[in-house]
Protein backbone atom coordinates (compact mmCIF):
# COMPACT_ATOMS: atom_id res chain seq x y z
CA UNK A 1 0.00 0.00 0.00
CA UNK A 2 1.15 3.47 -0.82
CA UNK A 3 2.21 5.19 2.35
CA UNK A 4 0.22 8.23 1.41
CA UNK A 5 -3.04 6.31 1.72
CA UNK A 6 -2.26 4.21 4.75
CA UNK A 7 -4.93 3.87 7.36
CA UNK A 8 -4.43 5.88 10.50
CA UNK A 9 -3.03 3.91 13.33
CA UNK A 10 -3.03 4.58 17.03
CA UNK A 11 -1.00 7.68 16.42
CA UNK A 12 -3.90 9.17 14.47
CA UNK A 13 -4.66 11.75 17.11
CA UNK A 14 -1.14 13.07 16.86
CA UNK A 15 -1.38 12.85 13.14
CA UNK A 16 -4.47 15.02 13.01
CA UNK A 17 -2.58 17.58 14.98
CA UNK A 18 0.40 17.26 12.67
CA UNK A 19 -1.77 17.65 9.63
CA UNK A 20 -3.38 20.71 11.14
CA UNK A 21 0.03 22.15 11.79
CA UNK A 22 1.08 21.64 8.18
CA UNK A 23 -2.08 23.41 7.01
CA UNK A 24 -1.26 26.28 9.36
CA UNK A 25 2.26 26.48 8.04
CA UNK A 26 1.15 26.52 4.42
CA UNK A 27 -1.63 28.97 5.14
CA UNK A 28 0.94 31.33 6.57
CA UNK A 29 3.12 31.00 3.47
CA UNK A 30 0.32 32.11 1.16
CA UNK A 31 -1.41 34.57 3.46
CA UNK A 32 1.17 37.30 3.45
CA UNK A 33 4.82 38.13 3.08
CA UNK A 34 7.54 36.42 5.13
CA UNK A 35 8.45 38.52 8.16
CA UNK A 36 11.15 38.17 10.80
CA UNK A 37 8.98 36.00 13.04
CA UNK A 38 8.11 33.56 10.29
CA UNK A 39 11.66 33.54 9.03
CA UNK A 40 12.88 32.52 12.48
CA UNK A 41 10.51 29.56 12.46
CA UNK A 42 11.60 28.49 9.01
CA UNK A 43 15.26 28.69 10.01
CA UNK A 44 14.91 26.31 12.98
CA UNK A 45 16.86 23.09 12.73
CA UNK A 46 13.77 20.85 12.57
CA UNK A 47 12.37 22.96 9.77
CA UNK A 48 15.56 22.80 7.78
CA UNK A 49 15.79 19.03 8.24
CA UNK A 50 12.23 18.52 7.11
CA UNK A 51 12.70 20.66 4.02
CA UNK A 52 16.03 19.11 3.17
CA UNK A 53 14.47 15.65 3.25
CA UNK A 54 12.29 16.65 0.33
CA UNK A 55 15.14 18.00 -1.71
CA UNK A 56 14.20 21.62 -1.19
CA UNK A 57 16.89 24.25 -1.45
CA UNK A 58 15.22 27.49 -0.54
CA UNK A 59 16.40 27.28 3.06
CA UNK A 60 19.99 27.66 1.91
CA UNK A 61 19.12 31.18 0.89
CA UNK A 62 17.37 31.65 4.23
CA UNK A 63 20.53 30.70 6.08
CA UNK A 64 23.06 32.53 3.98
CA UNK A 65 21.41 35.87 3.23
CA UNK A 66 21.14 38.96 5.36
CA UNK A 67 17.65 38.79 6.89
CA UNK A 68 16.52 42.25 5.87
CA UNK A 69 17.53 41.72 2.25
CA UNK A 70 15.88 38.33 2.13
CA UNK A 71 12.64 39.57 3.65
CA UNK A 72 12.58 42.42 1.14
CA UNK A 73 13.27 40.12 -1.78
CA UNK A 74 10.57 37.68 -0.73
CA UNK A 75 8.14 40.56 -0.23
CA UNK A 76 8.75 41.70 -3.81
CA UNK A 77 8.23 38.15 -4.98
CA UNK A 78 5.02 37.82 -2.96
CA UNK A 79 3.70 41.08 -4.44
CA UNK A 80 4.57 40.05 -7.95
CA UNK A 81 2.90 36.67 -7.54
CA UNK A 82 -0.19 37.42 -5.50
CA UNK A 83 -0.80 41.16 -5.20
CA UNK A 84 0.09 42.77 -8.50
CA UNK A 85 -0.02 40.29 -11.28
CA UNK A 86 -1.86 41.96 -14.11
CA UNK A 87 -1.48 39.91 -17.21
CA UNK A 88 -0.82 36.72 -15.20
CA UNK A 89 -3.58 34.78 -13.57
CA UNK A 90 -2.10 34.18 -10.14
CA UNK A 91 -4.84 35.69 -8.04
CA UNK A 92 -5.02 33.41 -4.99
CA UNK A 93 -8.81 33.12 -4.99
CA UNK A 94 -10.98 30.14 -5.81
CA UNK A 95 -13.55 32.38 -7.51
CA UNK A 96 -10.90 33.60 -9.91
CA UNK A 97 -9.14 30.33 -10.53
CA UNK A 98 -12.07 27.94 -10.64
CA UNK A 99 -15.30 29.93 -10.36
CA UNK A 100 -17.55 30.38 -13.33
CA UNK A 101 -17.17 34.13 -12.85
CA UNK A 102 -13.39 34.14 -13.15
CA UNK A 103 -13.50 37.17 -10.88
CA UNK A 104 -13.07 38.02 -7.23
CA UNK A 105 -16.09 37.68 -4.99
CA UNK A 106 -17.73 34.89 -6.98
CA UNK A 107 -20.00 32.17 -5.71
CA UNK A 108 -17.07 30.35 -4.14
CA UNK A 109 -16.58 33.26 -1.81
CA UNK A 110 -20.14 32.90 -0.45
CA UNK A 111 -19.98 29.15 -0.36
CA UNK A 112 -16.72 28.97 1.56
CA UNK A 113 -17.96 31.52 4.05
CA UNK A 114 -21.15 29.54 4.51
CA UNK A 115 -19.08 26.41 5.08
CA UNK A 116 -16.92 28.14 7.69
CA UNK A 117 -19.91 29.50 9.51
CA UNK A 118 -21.70 26.17 9.56
CA UNK A 119 -18.60 24.63 11.05
CA UNK A 120 -18.59 27.34 13.69
CA UNK A 121 -15.83 29.57 12.41
CA UNK A 122 -15.75 33.15 11.45
CA UNK A 123 -13.17 35.37 9.77
CA UNK A 124 -11.69 38.18 11.82
CA UNK A 125 -12.97 41.63 10.92
CA UNK A 126 -9.39 42.84 10.51
CA UNK A 127 -8.70 40.31 7.74
CA UNK A 128 -8.90 41.97 4.35
CA UNK A 129 -8.98 38.75 2.35
CA UNK A 130 -12.13 37.30 0.85
CA UNK A 131 -13.26 33.92 2.26
CA UNK A 132 -12.11 31.89 -0.73
CA UNK A 133 -8.47 33.01 -0.49
CA UNK A 134 -6.12 30.05 -0.76
CA UNK A 135 -4.58 30.76 2.65
CA UNK A 136 -7.95 30.92 4.35
CA UNK A 137 -9.12 27.67 2.81
CA UNK A 138 -5.88 26.05 4.04
CA UNK A 139 -6.26 27.57 7.48
CA UNK A 140 -9.81 26.30 7.72
CA UNK A 141 -8.61 22.79 6.97
CA UNK A 142 -6.09 23.22 9.74
CA UNK A 143 -8.82 24.18 12.18
CA UNK A 144 -10.88 21.18 11.14
CA UNK A 145 -7.89 18.91 11.72
CA UNK A 146 -7.36 20.37 15.15
CA UNK A 147 -11.00 19.80 15.91
CA UNK A 148 -10.43 16.19 14.87
CA UNK A 149 -7.91 15.89 17.63
CA UNK A 150 -9.56 14.04 20.54
CA UNK A 151 -8.26 16.70 22.85
CA UNK A 152 -10.93 18.96 21.43
CA UNK A 153 -13.56 16.47 22.40
CA UNK A 154 -15.25 16.19 19.01
CA UNK A 155 -15.66 12.89 17.19
CA UNK A 156 -12.72 12.62 14.81
CA UNK A 157 -14.76 10.93 12.09
CA UNK A 158 -17.21 13.85 11.88
CA UNK A 159 -14.38 16.23 11.45
CA UNK A 160 -12.68 14.11 8.81
CA UNK A 161 -15.90 13.91 6.86
CA UNK A 162 -16.11 17.67 6.94
CA UNK A 163 -12.50 17.94 5.87
CA UNK A 164 -13.10 15.58 2.96
CA UNK A 165 -16.17 17.54 1.91
CA UNK A 166 -14.39 20.86 2.08
CA UNK A 167 -11.45 19.66 0.06
CA UNK A 168 -13.73 18.09 -2.51
CA UNK A 169 -16.02 21.12 -2.80
CA UNK A 170 -13.33 23.76 -2.73
CA UNK A 171 -9.58 23.18 -2.62
CA UNK A 172 -9.64 20.27 -5.04
CA UNK A 173 -11.24 22.53 -7.67
CA UNK A 174 -8.22 24.66 -8.05
CA UNK A 175 -5.13 23.95 -6.04
CA UNK A 176 -3.25 22.07 -8.75
CA UNK A 177 -3.62 24.51 -11.67
CA UNK A 178 -3.12 27.44 -9.33
CA UNK A 179 0.02 26.04 -7.77
CA UNK A 180 1.33 24.95 -11.15
CA UNK A 181 1.06 28.53 -12.28
CA UNK A 182 2.77 29.84 -9.16
CA UNK A 183 5.52 27.28 -9.59
CA UNK A 184 6.03 28.40 -13.18
CA UNK A 185 6.01 32.09 -12.34
CA UNK A 186 8.02 32.10 -9.12
CA UNK A 187 11.47 33.61 -9.30
CA UNK A 188 12.67 32.64 -5.84
CA UNK A 189 12.85 28.96 -4.85
CA UNK A 190 10.86 29.74 -1.71
CA UNK A 191 7.51 30.12 -3.45
CA UNK A 192 8.37 27.62 -6.17
CA UNK A 193 9.20 24.90 -3.67
CA UNK A 194 6.35 25.70 -1.34
CA UNK A 195 4.01 25.40 -4.32
CA UNK A 196 5.41 21.95 -5.06
CA UNK A 197 5.23 21.06 -1.38
CA UNK A 198 1.63 22.24 -1.06
CA UNK A 199 0.57 20.31 -4.14
CA UNK A 200 2.15 17.15 -2.78
CA UNK A 201 0.62 17.65 0.62
CA UNK A 202 -2.89 18.26 -0.71
CA UNK A 203 -2.57 15.27 -3.05
CA UNK A 204 -1.71 13.15 -0.07
CA UNK A 205 -4.54 14.65 1.95
CA UNK A 206 -7.10 13.73 -0.68
CA UNK A 207 -5.84 10.14 -0.67
CA UNK A 208 -5.75 10.06 3.10
CA UNK A 209 -9.24 11.41 3.62
CA UNK A 210 -10.62 9.07 0.98
CA UNK A 211 -9.05 6.10 2.71
CA UNK A 212 -10.22 7.22 6.14
CA UNK A 213 -13.89 7.24 5.09
CA UNK A 214 -16.15 5.11 7.17
CA UNK A 215 -13.85 4.79 10.10
Amino acid sequence: MDESVMIMDSSSIGEAKARGNVYSLLSRVFMREVDKQFLDILKKRESIDAFRDHGFTFFEDLLSRREGDLIDELAVEFASLFLISPGRLLSPYESVQAGKEGQLGGEASSKTLFFYKKAGFTIHERISLLPDHFAIELEFMGHLCERGDAANGAPASNSRELQARFIKLHLANWYRPFLNRVEAAAGHPFYREFSIFTKGFLDSEIGYLESAKGE
Partner: peptide, 13 residues
Protein backbone atom coordinates in the same frame (compact mmCIF):
# COMPACT_ATOMS: atom_id res chain seq x y z
CA UNK B 1 6.64 13.05 6.19
CA UNK B 2 3.56 14.81 7.36
CA UNK B 3 4.25 14.04 11.00
CA UNK B 4 7.71 15.42 10.53
CA UNK B 5 6.55 18.52 8.74
CA UNK B 6 3.83 18.91 11.33
CA UNK B 7 6.55 19.70 13.81
CA UNK B 8 7.56 22.71 11.74
CA UNK B 9 3.95 23.69 11.43
CA UNK B 10 3.51 23.23 15.16
CA UNK B 11 6.10 25.88 15.78
CA UNK B 12 4.30 28.10 13.34
CA UNK B 13 0.88 27.32 14.70
Amino acid sequence: DILKMGAVGATAA
